[in-house]
Design a protein around this nucleic acid. Structure first.
Length: 195
DNA sequence: CGCCGGATTTAA
DNA sequence: TAAATCCGGCGA
């Protein structure tokens, strides 16, 4: 069992979130895939150009939800992990449904469970019913969307982050994408290797 | 399973 | 104008 660790390096925080649960209403998801994003020094991060209205939550405090809208169609859920005034966030990229399956199937417009049901950041937020109104929500407080401890994965996979072609080669190569090696709810698993 | 194009809002 | 993506269609 691991508790969400939201202090220390963002990559370490990202790994510690694997296995933790996201709970909203009757829906519980177990996190299977994450990506770490840093501050202005990370050319792949939304914080690379400094603090903006969109990325303000990344600057802490830790444990708040950073929601952003992507490609004109999808909401993405991140967990802010840095101390106040230091930008860091972990993108929740994949999950497995533990409770509230009927609700998730309806939100995802699916009729049955498949490995890919919540494999993908847009799918995770959709399964939880999230949108901009959850930005800056405290995930460690009771009520609403919350983050809870869960069983840590036995095997870990790691690899480069996805969809960051605009970043420097060094930052593109940084292995800051992590996944549960025993879960099938991981998109594009081929790009990952045992940690 | 992989590649491709369209959808469609936001922010630099 | 490009983006921390998804989905359906198609071919291997």
């Amino acid at each position: 069992m691991v508790s969400p660790r939201l202090s220390g390096a963002v990559a370490e925080a990202a790994r510690s979130l694997l296995g933790c649960r996201l709970v909203h209403g009757g829906v519980t998801l177990r996190i299977t895939e994450v990506e770490a994003y840093g501050g202005p020094e990370d050319s792949a991060s939304h914080a690379r150009h400094g603090r903006t209205a969109r990325n303000a939550v990344m600057w802490g405090p830790a444990g708040r939800a950073y929601l952003f809208f992507c490609y004109g169609a999808h909401w993405m859920l991140n967990v802010a992990t840095g101390p106040e005034h230091e930008a860091a966030a972990v993108l929740i990229r994949g999950a497995e449904v533990e409770t509230g399956l009927e609700t998730v199937l309806a939100r995802r417009r699916a009729t049955r469970v498949t490995p890919g049901l919540c494999a993908g950041p847009g799918k995770v937020a959709q399964a939880l019913g999230l949108d901009r109104s959850f930005n800056d929500h405290d995930l460690l407080a009771k009520g609403g969307l919350s983050l809870l401890p869960g069983p840590a994965p036995t095997r870990l996979l790691a690899g480069p982050r996805l969809g960051i072609a605009y970043a420097t080669p060094e930052d593109q190569a940084r292995p800051w994408r992590f996944a549960d090696g025993d879960s099938r709810a991981v998109a594009r698993r081929k790009a990952l290797a045992p940690l």
